[in-house]
Amino acid sequence: METNDIPNNEGQEEDPARADRLLRDFHEHEQRLLGPDGRPFEVPAEGSLGLLALGYRGLAAWRSAKRAQGLAADAFSQELAQPEEPGS
């Protein structure tokens, strides 16, 4: 039995425009990765472990590749049985 009564700093967003700017960059700009040879790296829509290890740039490039192919974020979710999480 858990509660979430912890005080928070919600509503203290000092610069809403900052988040908007960052989100725009993250979502809308085409994210390109360069391979070790300096050439653009072809990002597969199904992603890879290497992309995950790369961090936020890998995530952005992978999501961008999915968008480019018209795929939803959870396009591959049928490959993995999802349990019923709260809210589903």
Partner: peptide, 28 residues
């Protein structure tokens, strides 16, 4: 969750940096 990110004005952006397992594919 509220209070998960400081400073708070980064919270909305950081929420997008999270990966949900439903995003993953067999490749990973």
């Amino acid at each position: 969750p509220a209070g998960a990110v400081h400073p708070p004005d980064l919270a909305r952006f950081f929420a997008e940096l999270r990966v949900h397992p439903s995003e993953l594919s067999m490749a990973q």
